[in-house]
Design a protein around this nucleic acid. Structure first.
Lengths: 146, 146
DNA sequence: GTTACATGTAATATAATATGTTACAGGTTG
DNA sequence: CAACCTGTAACATATTATATTACATGTAAC
């Protein structure tokens, strides 16, 4: 099973906001680019707002960036949209048998190992910003027109 | 959402097999330690068998290691039990709008970034073996008895 | 202040998935 | 043959992701 595409959609949204700073980006308009329902966009935008990444206000059309794209890492977005429960990228089976040596120690033995792997993932996400994503998009667009 | 605990259970199983090499480890016995149904164990053991990590035969009681524990990394197990579709740790929304600059480039722009993060995760998992896990378990067990 | 329109959010529908369980077919050993 | 195990299909249940409808609330323009 994969990590929710909500993460990818959030990146899509932020890229749009960065490229259309002078436009009014309504949830319906964004939904048209992402190809989903406006409510889905509003929900995700809500996560981004709570994380302080975008500005949105009830009744006022459009979302806008709260920070420069170069100051929003993929990790910021990843955490904002909560696609993975905090420190629980890897699920652990609960209630192993305490009467067994392995059973009564496995959870604590595994936990730090999983945490290390998770941190490696997060560090990689922290090394990239949405500005990088937009640069990449623009580069690809340039190549298309040739 | 977290990665299936099937991964953690598989580590549990292999740890058991390593610590009880002289015993006959039936699916029912293992299930008792993991605290689940024997069929679940047999299913996971099947994955491990397909990956060449354990020996099991229809009709013959017990599973056993096909390799030394020090030669089974968490990454081997992770891949064996297929808790994540190949190269798709991160889900991507499909069919973004091709009429939009972002829509028609976002997938290809994001893909390599996600791949890099995924590789970082896998590399971390590759650095640890089941032997390390068992050592950790034994160390914790020693501390308990003091 | 009322009209038009946008966001926020609850409620619901549907599909996919994880986990557990029953049932049983087929293999192996004594 | 008898006892027992693994492999696996079939099914139940719970959880989750995504989409959708409906509507309450906020804002701005006229």
């Amino acid at each position: 099973m994969s990590i929710s595409s909500r993460f990818a959609v959030a990146i899509h949204i932020l890229s749009l906001l960065g490229m259309n700073k002078d436009q009014v980006n309504t949830s319906e308009w964004i939904a048209g680019s992402v190809n989903t329902n406006p409510v889905v966009i509003r929900k995700i935008t809500g996560y981004l707002k709570n994380a302080g990444l975008v500005h949105v206000r009830p009744g006022v059309a459009g979302a806008s960036l709260a920070r420069d794209l170069s100051e929003i890492s993929l990790l910021d977005v990843y955490k904002a949209v909560q696609v993975v429960p905090e420190n629980e990228l890897f699920g652990i089976h609960d209630q192993p048998n305490p009467a067994c040596t392995v059973g009564r120690n496995i959870q604590q033995a595994i936990e730090p190992l999983f945490a290390t792997a998770q941190l490696a993932l997060e560090k990689a996400l922290g090394n990239v910003t949405i500005a990088d994503v937009v640069s990449n998009i623009l580069e690809r667009e340039r190549l298309r027109s040739n």
